[in-house]
Design a protein around this nucleic acid. Sequence first.
DNA 1: ACCTGAACACCGTTCAAGT
DNA 2: ACCTGAACACCGTTCAAGT
Lengths: 215, 215
Amino acid sequence: MTPACASVDNYVVNGNMGAMMSGMTERPYHHGHLRAALLDEAERTLREQGIDALSLRDLARQAGVSHAAPRRHFADRQALLDALAEAGFTRLGAEVSAAIDGAGTDYRARLQAAATAYVRFATADAALLQLMFSDKNSKALPRAAVGLFATVSDLIDQGQQAGVLPPGDPDRLRLLLVATLQGVAALTISGGVARGQADALITDAVTLFTRGDLP
Amino acid sequence: MTPACASVDNYVVNGNMGAMMSGMTERPYHHGHLRAALLDEAERTLREQGIDALSLRDLARQAGVSHAAPRRHFADRQALLDALAEAGFTRLGAEVSAAIDGAGTDYRARLQAAATAYVRFATADAALLQLMFSDKNSKALPRAAVGLFATVSDLIDQGQQAGVLPPGDPDRLRLLLVATLQGVAALTISGGVARGQADALITDAVTLFTRGDLP
DNA sequence: ACCTGAACACCGTTCAAGT
DNA sequence: ACCTGAACACCGTTCAAGT
């Protein structure tokens, strides 16, 4: 469930307020994992409570450090958000890639699997996806999204070579596909479409791109 | 600094005439237009500086009232954002509708005009569009977006009757079209595609939906 | 190198009181 | 009915100082 920060998990601060007020003198903390702990906790807060609930002071509190300590690892709040977005792109790219690899050889099935993985990520981490596509990291986006775009590009190439996708500039087709997936995700997140409708939308999009007959 | 409140011309003062003095008086503000002035200024701040720069206290300051005065008209910050989103949907619906009406009789031209109007709105008011499709107003969305959805539904019906759009469930086709436009807008806003690319993307989307040949 | 504690300016929200 | 002023709790950011 929680990616990143895998090998080092021995600190386990089950942070709650009163536990470290007084009494036992547990202060060996230099903490050691502060950066990873902050990112981990931030990702969960983002998922469970949205971006408005994400506060540097609160994260520091939950990590058991002073409110100024995060400054060593993130210059400001935006730097933390940028790091979250970057990690999000890496994970999204990996999940889409894994979905394609596990989808067998039929091209439509592979395309459908990629689209489904994308929308699943979007609904499970709506706030994160919105952060990833925020206009604030227009510069950081391409750097972290390279893997995802490469995966989709390969998918486009395969489809065109197999004659299942329409011919034409593969870059434009890739952008259109990503845009469509992003739009389906956005509408699903915003409540414009329900869950079952989302699956139908994905199917329709795949059908449209592969020039099949819409139902 | 500026008095703002310029484009407000159809508010109605219900039985509060005593507060409005004839002649130009600068000071005796009960203000009279506070709600409209706040919305006006908020929309501009949103456009020019983004949602993070939108503060109730700042809006009150610019309107020349105390920081607690907005409370009379908006229960909290979220209520203001909801009102902005609702007004946004109304305006977006009107602009798309006008674009279609002014696009002549050729169906592809009408579809292209609608798509262009949508993306133009999205790039001109990026923060507002993100607000409109935020997951926070999942309930308020359908109410205000009805006009827009009806316009797009009409467009779908025309296309299917003319045989230019593929047959099938018009509701699903409408969702797919809106999702595609939303995705193109999102990618354009986030900097994933440039301006000229956006136009090409729109053209490709229209071509795909109308089953023409992609370039 | 990493972290603390105090300080500053700002914010949203509440509420008694003014007019 | 509409608005003010003070108050509260919270926030991001900065900086001298601790270890």
